[in-house]
Nucleic acid binder design. Structure first.
Lengths: 192, 192
DNA sequence: CCACATTCTAATACCAAGTACTAATAGCAG
DNA sequence: CTGCTATTAGTACTTGGTATTAGAATGTGG
């Protein structure tokens, strides 16, 4: 049986979320309707064509900060001065929170801060060695977490980074990270 | 003056690195040659067409987004005695490591330990309040992390949980978590 | 049951950014 | 002049669409 228009459009949205690389033809087969119907649906729903969707995704990726591969950062880095300071934003979405109470799981806040701290360090390889953290108040669904990081100490092979995460200027998380760093040749040496 | 073939090809590579969204036509204008010449160059250099390049970037991006939301618990809990102790396993897969060096990102180890610590606490709601952690040695792709947690102290509204994560019986991570707990009615009261 | 609306399908012309291929031209080297 | 490389030109075809028009199928109210 064929779905109603509304249901089909809902289905379309779901399918595209799961796989945004679907062509109209593939979607038509999935829904058992003609290609034209799918195009009309896309119009109504304001969904751009395959190539535009792909381009968008690619651009989002490309716009990010150069020096560190952006896939390795949780949260969007909006400012970064290597070995000095940085800022990143993470919007708390439903995949970040406990279903029960809508409070963000601590490890996402940690991940944001940790990624930023590591991204700050100007070295071939940077790894967290230790950290001391405090979750000052629970963060809830929909809140935007701004993490401010600054380097507070540089030693021979360690950098200390302090991160404060705020929601509406209110501190929600605090962390002191000790980041271990190496240049590639040095690591190669160690590997032997 | 027009560049030599070699120089033009070098230039092409540079330009595409700076802006991978260039069409053949735009590149032709940049180099002051015909579109066909650019296509021949791309052939020789093994550079795919614009759409393929964009698609590649988008796919890379998409895979990350996916791996970034390991929904529920991180690591599989294999033993749990509420308010006493627990064990969980996490196998380090490629979505957990830095592409560059195959070392696990700290926040995954943290997430495993944090989730276990919270799971241990027998309360309606349990949230991490603070933690002190040490990454003892880097963990690599393919290694199985066994996290052992035990409650070390119970106060009126706080529980302290110690977590040790081992790979082949060798400690790789240590964490002391302070978990804040509440019963639902209590939290409701606070909300007011 | 008819009339009309909604929904769907079909068909056509067109576009961007290509691939794949053939052929022609320019410039220079031996 | 012949041969070779580099370059340009042109044609047919491809994908994944847009935009538009027309017609068919289905449902709904009066």
């Amino acid at each position: 049986m064929r779905l109603s228009k509304k249901e089909r459009q809902k289905k379309l949205i779901r399918e595209l979320e799961a796989d945004p690389f679907l062509t109209d033809e593939q979607m038509a087969k999935l829904c058992n309707v003609s290609i034209q119907t799918i195009r009309l649906d896309r119009m109504e729903l304001g969904i751009p064509e395959l190539r535009e969707r792909i381009k968008h995704m690619a651009e989002k990726n490309f716009d990010q900060v150069r020096s560190l591969s952006p896939q390795e950062v949780i949260g969007e880095v909006i400012d970064l001065q290597l070995d000095k300071s940085g800022v990143s934003i993470l919007e708390i979405r439903k995949e970040h929170v406990f279903e029960r109470n809508g409070i963000a799981r601590g490890h996402y806040l940690f991940a944001q801060a940790n990624s930023l701290a590591i991204g700050l360090v100007d070295a071939e390889i940077a790894l967290t060695a230790a950290a001391e953290i405090r979750f000052v108040r629970p963060v809830r669904l929909g809140e935007k977490c701004m993490a401010y990081a600054k380097v507070v100490e540089v030693q021979s092979s360690r950098t200390k980074v302090e991160v404060q995460t705020k929601v509406n200027n209110e501190v929600v998380f605090y962390g002191l990270f000790e980041v271990y760093r190496t240049e590639e040749d040095q690591l190669a040496k160690e590997e032997r």
